[in-house]
Amino acid sequence: MNKIAQSVRLWFAPQRIRDEGDTPDYRFSLANERTFLAWIRTALALIGGGFAVDQFLPELAWGVRAGLALGLLAAGVLCALRAVNHWVRCERAMRRGEDLPVSRFPTLLGIVVAVVAVAMVVVVLFGWEGR
């Protein structure tokens, strides 16, 4: 919990990150930045998926459609916030010369996307028409 509070403080006091350790090779920082952007795109894709579920599956029952859309949008928000947090932690680890942080977030996101995909397959195969 303390670790999270520390990270969040770093988000809002950006100059503090520069106080620690040495500036790493610029190529490492740029690689970290690209990884961050890839996560942001993943978040945008999830949000786009939320819109798509609502717009392109009109014959679904309202509850199912809203649930799927809300799940995708929430996953997008989580993904974007996690992207900043992970970027800050990687940047700090590089400055201090520590190992890069490990994370179980990719596994969790993978499982969530798999569950949504299976739900979609079931819905498409068996109809689930309502209203």
């Binding site: 770093l10 942001i40 978040a43």
Partner: peptide
């Protein structure tokens, strides 16, 4: 120069705003 944390936060917050 490395990306400023302010920039990273702004990009993420815009994404959250979309959602």
């Amino acid at each position: 120069e490395p990306l400023a944390p302010r920039g990273a936060l702004a990009a993420a917050l815009c994404t959250v705003a979309f959602a």
